[in-house]
Nucleic acid binder design. Sequence first.
RNA 1: GCCGGAGUGGCGGAAUGGCAGACGCAGCGGAUUCAAAACCCGCCGCCUGCAAAGGCGUGAGGGUUCAAGUCCCUCCUCCGGCACCA
Length: 800
Amino acid sequence: MRMQSNAARDGDARPKQYLLVEFPYPSGEGLHVGHLRSYTAMDILARKRRMEGKNVLYPIGWDAFGLPAENYAIKTGQHPRVTTEQNCANFRRQLQAMGFSFDWSREVNTTDPAYYRWTQWIFLQLLRQGLAYKAKMPINWCPKCKIGLANEEATGGVCERCGGPVEKRDREQWMLKITAYAEQLLAGLDTVDYIERAKAQQRNWIGRSEGVDIDFSVQGSDAVITVFTTRCDTLYSCAFLALAPEHPLVTRLTTEAQRDAVAAYVDRARAKTEIERTKLDQEQDGVFTGSSAVNPISGEVVPVWISDFVLGHYGHGAVFGDIHDARDFVLGKRYGIPMRVTVLPPSGDDVDAIRAQAVCYPDDGVLIDSGPFTGMTSSEARERIAQWLEEHGAGRRRVQYKLRDWVFSRQRYWGEPIPVVFCAACGTVPVPEDQLPVLLPEVERYQPTDTGESPLANITEWVNTKCPQCHGPAQRETDVMPNWAGSSWYFLRYIDPKNDRALADPTQLQYWMPIDWYNGGMEHTTLHLLYSRFWNLFLHDIGVVPVAEPYQKRTSHGMILGPDGEKMSKSRGNVINPDTIVAEYGADAVRVYEMFIGPFDQMVPWSTDGLVGCRRFLERVAALLSRVDPKPAGDSCGTIADRDLLRMMHRTIQRVTEDIEDMHFNTVVSALMEYTNALVKQERIPFLAYTTLLTLLAPFAPHLAEELHEQLPDPEAPAHLLADHPWPVFDPAQLAADTWEMVVQVNGKVRATLSMPTNATLAEMQEQALRDATVQKHLAGRAPTRVVVVPGKLMNIVVD
RNA sequence: GCCGGAGUGGCGGAAUGGCAGACGCAGCGGAUUCAAAACCCGCCGCCUGCAAAGGCGUGAGGGUUCAAGUCCCUCCUCCGGCACCA
């Protein structure tokens, strides 16, 4: 079989089309049927786009740094590079067996030094711009395995490896200031075409809220407690302040009498695990510091408490407590702190209960007992009180985000070394760009050290180096980057994968970016998708990338579950192995079934019976070949005399063309099946009718379509591949029929179906309908009060 | 609690407000075969009926409309995300 070229051509005159799928982590298990769903869908689009005359870039590569290879190395001593190479070879074989039309000349691998050189380069740019910094952060530490764990490995506070409890250890970590881009990451969502749930999830994750920082001065001290609130309209009801146990002022504000009680409470809070502390169904508790603070708007003096429902990392780790918040309400009631109602619902019968402080009213309403703001609505009061606070220097409007900075250090081996050195004289010094990449050295043992440092820390000849600035003795950073680093910019490298002077040539970036369509899993919406948008925004800001938003359009495929409806897993034994099914049913049948299995964006269970049906469909297509009329001489593929068949062909072209764009692949396959079933009923099949079927089928089942195309009864053997055919265009004029089936309803119920000439007049339609016996029976002699006619569809006769 | 999505035959699912159940699977019947598998033809939502025909039917209840799976209101259930976030 002749091979079509899938290579994208840089700077081609044709319109470009950059289609992207998430590159896989090359695990030892091989490809998953879930990969196939995404890759097949985008392969169909890539093939269709090429037939439509586009210059298509559809690349693939390997996101090959990662924990499984490293854990395997710890167990066996086998170098991750070796297993990674084997796994990549296996994945490559599997992807090629599926016939995906990737541009293999642009393959990238995140573990290739020629690649991670540029990952390190991007880090240096972030460092230079002050967006990378070191901070003391707690890491997950398993005391039994003596290993630092990623959050994903410590879910539920339990070590994934040994099942023992995980504790927090403070460690200096590299951080990336993604929060500096919070607003842009949020605003950018309005400029791109992502599926709604992806946008919603990102907005959720960024968690923007508008509010006010309010300063409370502590009585008998020069200390000031700043709290953040979105509800400054309830400021007159402030009954107390509550600090997080880790708040820096805790020690200072605690009076002698309260010292023991506070110390006990803070210790107890610290001993609690993250899960215990954030458990929802517990009553808020706390302890009084002994100090009091002044409400800047009312001058009222309120007690300062400590409670662990207040989070240290959000806002300023302090809140003002009042009766209009469910948690504050519980705390106040529990300790008998005097509270005051200042917001009432505009109407309703619960007013008495609210006034009596029997229930908490957390919603907006109308203000009472609030000085000059009494009588205002909550939203009005928020505006005016914020203004008052700003004018009196007691507060500032501010936007607060839930998004937190990105912990960028891993105490691991199999990752990109972070390219900095520590010099006693010069401090933290970036490795000069011309010395990149900082190569990952060979180690003997892959275990992290007892101190929680990376295995790299043990290689003294690597760690000890010279300071690039003063040439004095210095030590290398031994942390490596997280998995997300390499995947945060890979789409840029595909554009110019072999460039050794820049991460990619600006002219090529200008030509190919942005990515027209990116499909991937929902599980990557908040991490990978957000991280890579952040890096691209940053690279855009420093003039490396021409567009701010990397992905013009983002879609997501639903997960494929096991035949039992459960998530596929080795332990459940419900995993479908692509190699097995491809060997048994062929790649084309698997491709067609992956698209036919159900709505593309929804979760669906695997069914090998369904796959059999797709295999049978392809066999029916192949069986038609013997009944195809020979191609007439000349360039034309001939005509179709049968008007019904011709109409169906055009209808099928339309459905397939439109439904592919909407990712309704399941209905595309059924449209092709219906068209095939119509051809099955023909004694002889017009050449044109059959080549059209093959052309429409080609993106779905390229191997079979191409093979049948070669065997067509064409005396002048075709000079080109089916894949080089132009995509068929449907002719709306051919969709019109001479007659239509008119459904006749009486009072909305179907009573007859009559064949109508397209040019029938209203009177003729009505006359025919009224003559029908069943219609007459249901009219029972009554005269129609109204007749509704929808031409081409139906007639509804309404009687009383 | 907030945000997003979904609920239709035995199963996966289809349906610009206009014949609910396309297409496929499973099932049933036939044809073929020495026999079986495959292929081929037909039937296939539920109830009544020999049939003709009729009634019911898209999570529940209301509403709009000549006409509602589809639009509006009030709920219920399931899936996903966020969550003592002030």
